[in-house]
Simulated assay, not measured.
Amino acid sequence: MKAPAAKKTSTAPKAPPANPRDLTRSEIAYRRLKAAIFDFVLLPGDGFTESDMAERLGMSRTPVREALFRLELEGYVKVAFRSGWSVAPFDFRKLEELYDLRVMLECAAVDRLCTQDPMPDLGLLKAIWLVPEKERKTDTTEVASLDEAFHTTLVSAAGNLQMARVHAEVTDGIRIVRRLDFTQPPRVAATYDEHAKILRAILARRADPAKLMLRTHIEASKAEVRKITIHKLHSARPATTDL
């Protein structure tokens, strides 16, 4: 009689827990702090101690410290000996380089989309962006999220997993300034118009016009990065600063 085969142990990374109750305290602190930075509750240059932040988050210092060290590795906060922590200033050179990389990745994705037969289904994007003006979303926060999804969906649909992985990293790196861009209501209408033109060109397999419009669209967003001022950041801070 044969012995039962040994059970294989999977080495694949586990998916993030779906239930918030399954998250560690450190992960919760990390997500709340990062959201506070991205939502301009915490602005570049804002200083704080671990004790202060633990009190604001309603948890002990240990998970807060672990979250802060993780955010430090990602470049969002800085630690200073004996003087606590502070939100890191924007690295404008890094941001511009990320935008340049984004242009290359998304233009390459357009080339792939326009040559695939059949073309991947872009119906979800059509349902969002090719709508009558009266059906457009107006909430700037919602449109900012939809804008990000438009670009990530194009790259994902191109079918290159490594390209999509790198693009996701780039997207995360520029998310904070993209949200700042969408604090200006005129950007909502412009984004709808530009996305619709890009999408129609892709659906018609007109790669060169689509890439030109895409590049212009991204360059306009990149140009806004150069206009970021302390006043603009403080204007974006919400009325409530709860974490």
Rank of each mutant, 00 (worst) to 15 (best):
V155M: 04
A157L: 15
N160K: 09
N160A: 07
Q162N: 14
M163T: 15
A164M: 02
R165M: 01
R165L: 02
V166Y: 00
H167Y: 08
H167P: 04
A168D: 11
A168M: 12
E169H: 08
E169K: 07
E169F: 07
V170Q: 02
V170E: 02
D172C: 06
D172M: 05
G173W: 00
R178N: 04
L180K: 01
L180D: 00
D181W: 12
D181C: 12
F182C: 04
F182K: 06
F182E: 06
R187N: 15
R187L: 14
R187G: 13
A190V: 00
T191N: 14
T191K: 09
T191Q: 08
Y192V: 09
Y192S: 06
D193P: 06
E194H: 03
A196E: 13
A196L: 13
K197M: 06
I198E: 01
I198A: 01
A201G: 11
L203N: 05
L203P: 10
A204Y: 01
R206M: 12
A207C: 10
A207L: 06
A207P: 09
P209G: 13
P209C: 13
A210D: 12
A210P: 12
K211S: 08
K211I: 08
L212V: 15
M213C: 14
M213F: 14
H217R: 07
H217T: 05
I218Y: 07
E219T: 11
E219A: 10
V225I: 13
K227P: 07
K227A: 10
I230W: 12
I230R: 13
H231M: 15
H231N: 14
H231Q: 15
L233H: 03
L233A: 03
S235P: 13
